[in-house]
């Protein structure tokens, strides 16, 4: 493999890793901070992509689809938290698994009713539709590069909110020790609903941003859900930085695995996860449970 090909594959791996991070960050926030296992995370990823298809079909404007889709997902997240999820804090994980599994079925049926079963595609904004020539035969779509940039910006924004703001401080305190945070009179429970809705919005945002390069189809969230859980477990539950490292590791392992070890590429990321968990049972940056 020559240097250029290697660089292109590296770019492929990093780009895939960044998208994984975007989707998994929402999952790790909800899982780590609220202690809620949300199996419907992949379904919201799919729903985001369908919102993007829906809005951009009627308005022809991807920016509008982006804003509208995220807003709708956030609103749905708020409503779900108020109606269902808040009853489940502190309950065992089985109740949460049942609820979110039910949500998967409901979302899938609603998707069926609203959008049908066909495969759709979403056009990227015109100014991002070109591609850059890399070798004599290979080009790289500008949108994929823009996607990398957007993911990096979003990652920075998430880190800023969690590390540098008052809201982030409350979230971190709650993730550290829920009962102690409440006992100190910190309004942790008030931010719950925003964390949950934010997690849903991040999943949908992932689906929206990916829709121009991934196409929109039923079941697109299923694979994403599983791999997001791998990222979260690998990085350490509740750790956004861990999710970032885990996502990049998986993106690179998957890409280079497909190139160098095509026969076993499908199990490589799970081998990676098993290896990391043997070495650090709580994930790369996960804290020991007290």
């Amino acid at each position: 493999m020559d240097a250029i090909t290697f660089a292109v594959q590296l770019l492929n791996g990093v780009q895939y890793g960044l998208v994984l991070f975007l989707v998994a960050s929402g999952l790790t926030l909800v899982f780590g901070i609220l202690g809620v296992i949300n199996l419907a995370h992949g379904a919201f990823y799919m729903l985001g992509a369908y919102f993007a298809y829906w809005i951009s079909r009627y308005t022809g404007n991807f920016g509008l689809a982006l804003v509208g889709g995220v807003a709708m997902a956030f609103a749905i997240g708020l409503a779900l938290e108020q109606i269902f999820v808040k009853r489940l804090y502190g309950r065992d994980h089985l109740a949460q698994v049942l609820l979110s599994f039910g949500l998967i079925l409901v979302i899938d049926e609603v998707r069926q009713i609203l959008f049908g079963k066909d495969v759709h595609s979403v056009a990227a904004p015109t100014w991002l539709q070109g591609s850059i020539r890399l070798t004599d035969v290979l080009s790289y779509p500008v949108y994929r590069l823009a996607l990398c940039a957007i993911c990096l910006v979003l990652a920075a924004a998430i880190f800023y909110v969690i590390q540098r703001t008052k809201l982030g401080m409350v979230i971190r305190a709650g993730a550290e020790n829920r009962d102690m945070t409440r006992a100190l009179g910190i309004p942790f429970d008030v931010v719950n609903k925003y964390v949950f809705a934010g997690g849903i919005a991040l999943a949908a945002l992932g689906g929206i941003l990916v829709s121009p390069i991934s196409t929109v189809f039923p079941g697109m969230g299923d694979g994403m859900l599983i791999i997001s859980f791998v990222v979260v477990v690998l990085g350490g539950i509740g750790s956004v930085a861990g999710a970032a490292i885990g996502a990049l590791m998986i993106g690179l392992t998957d890409t280079f695995g497909k190139v160098f070890f095509p026969q076993i590429s499908s199990i490589l990321i799970y081998v990676l996860m098993a290896g990391v968990l043997l070495w650090r049972p709580n994930g790369l940056l996960g804290r020991k449970e007290s």
Partner: peptide, 22 residues
């Protein structure tokens, strides 16, 4: 012969491979 697990849709690595094979 290039192949990826069913039903995975992350083709970028293999498309780059095709560009190398020409």
């Amino acid at each position: 012969d290039l192949a990826l697990p069913f039903p995975e849709v992350e083709f970028q690595a293999l498309i780059t491979r095709i560009a190398t094979l020409k």
